[in-house]
């Protein structure tokens, strides 16, 4: 795919692509999501009521508790997971959850990833290389 390449630290999981859903806010599967309906449910979250299923989620940092490590696997088993997760800073829980679920995750980009990509842009994620390719150029 032609487009602008953004580099991060080598990530976890297989390559993936999809439409971006972006906010400069944080991420926890337990605190922020209605995992049955596939939407952000925490009222204070900037993506409140947004559907994340199949999207490349782009957020700031991983927050909250430990449960996300199991939950990514559970969400993926029902086909209700995002396509990938791009963060400025992951925490161990997200990394462990991604490793367990075989879920694409990259963090520590050369730039603030929540400013570099806009909601609706098509992005391709390559965790092994630690790169994200943004269709049509970065924001």
């Amino acid at each position: 795919m032609a487009g602008t390449v953004i580099r991060g630290h080598a990530g976890i999981g297989p390559a993936a692509e999809g439409e971006a859903l972006v906010a400069h806010d944080n991420f926890s599967a337990r605190y922020d999501l209605d995992r049955i309906r596939g939407v952000f449910s925490r009222p204070a979250h900037k993506l409140h009521d947004e559907n994340y299923v199949g999207k490349v989620l782009v957020l700031n940092i991983a927050k909250g508790g430990v449960a996300t490590a199991w939950m990514l696997h559970e969400m993926a088993s029902r086909g209700m997971a995002p396509a990938a997760l791009l963060l400025n800073y992951a925490n161990p829980i997200i990394a462990q959850g991604a490793a367990f679920a075989g879920f694409p995750l990259i963090d520590r980009f050369e730039t603030d990833i929540t400013r570099a990509i806009e909601t609706g842009q098509h992005v391709a994620v390559d965790p092994a290389a630690g790169t994200v390719t943004v269709d049509g150029g970065a924001a």
């Binding site: 430990v66 449960a67 996300t68 490590a69 199991w70 696997h73 925490n91 161990p92 829980i93 462990q96 959850g97 490793a99 367990f100």
Partner: peptide, 8 residues
């Protein structure tokens, strides 16, 4: 210790 999620 780090945060060790369930599978970890």
């Amino acid at each position: 210790t780090n945060y060790e999620g369930g599978p970890s």
